[in-house]
Amino acid sequence: MKVMGFAGWSGSGKTTLVEQVIGVLSARGLVVSLVKHAHHSFDIDHAGKDSWRHRQAGCSEVMVSSAQRWSLTCELRGAPEATLDELLAHLRPCDLVLVEGFKRAQIPKIEVHRAVVTEPLLHPDDPNIVAVATDERLDTGLPQLDINDPAAVAGFIVDYLGV
């Protein structure tokens, strides 16, 4: 599987850009998967639902399946957070995995930057950043992609990874 990450500070537009890029890549016939890192507790289950009740009762893993999708929820219960490599190993084969977050991962990444975000740029300190998707001109030798042109960002990913 080919992997490309998206890294940037909160409010930079990572999720919006990734969503749009997925649409472009999928329309090109590529099978795309996603791994997203959350810095906070999250729940894909809802209180009172059967699967939620099973987790609350103590299950370490709960799988829910239907004719449209299946989902596996793993409770860490004090175990260390999974690494990106461990998470990638759970995915079925696909053409491309996009990774949102995991700023420090040792994978090629596109930094997502908007002028309104005042946090420092990541790429000067991260050799794994291969391009910057931005809404302003930056003083960098990296390729600069228009954050508002998801087709150009998708094209860069396809060319860079040889997908």
Rank of each mutant, 00 (worst) to 15 (best):
N148M: 11
V130E: 06
S60F: 10
G141A: 12
T73M: 15
G8E: 07
A79Y: 10
Q20S: 13
R114E: 04
L76N: 05
G155H: 04
R92D: 13
H40T: 06
V99G: 05
D146N: 10
T134K: 11
I157K: 07
D45I: 02
R92E: 12
G155K: 06
V132Y: 00
E75V: 14
S10D: 05
W9R: 09
V116S: 14
V3W: 00
V163H: 03
A82C: 13
P127G: 00
L84H: 05
S65A: 15
L91S: 08
N128E: 07
A7E: 05
N148C: 12
S12R: 08
L72Q: 13
A133W: 07
P108A: 01
P93F: 01
E81G: 11
I129C: 08
D139K: 11
A67V: 15
E75A: 05
G11C: 08
L121D: 01
E81S: 14
E19K: 14
E61C: 13
H123D: 03
A133I: 13
G78V: 14
K36H: 04
Q56K: 14
S33M: 00
D85F: 03
A89D: 10
G13W: 09
H46Y: 14
D139H: 10
R77M: 06
D135A: 01
H54R: 13
V97W: 04
V158D: 06
H113T: 10
V112T: 12
E136Q: 15
L34P: 00
K103I: 00
W52H: 15
I44D: 12
C59D: 12
S60R: 15
V18K: 01
V97P: 03
G8I: 07
A115D: 11
Q20P: 00
L72E: 04
I147D: 04
V64S: 02
L34E: 02
A27G: 11
I44V: 15
E81F: 11
C94V: 05
Q68C: 07
D159N: 13
Q20H: 11
R137W: 12
V32T: 03
K109A: 02
G58T: 13
R77I: 09
T134V: 14
G23H: 04
G141Q: 09
A27H: 11
M63K: 14
A47S: 15
H113K: 14
G29L: 01
T16P: 12
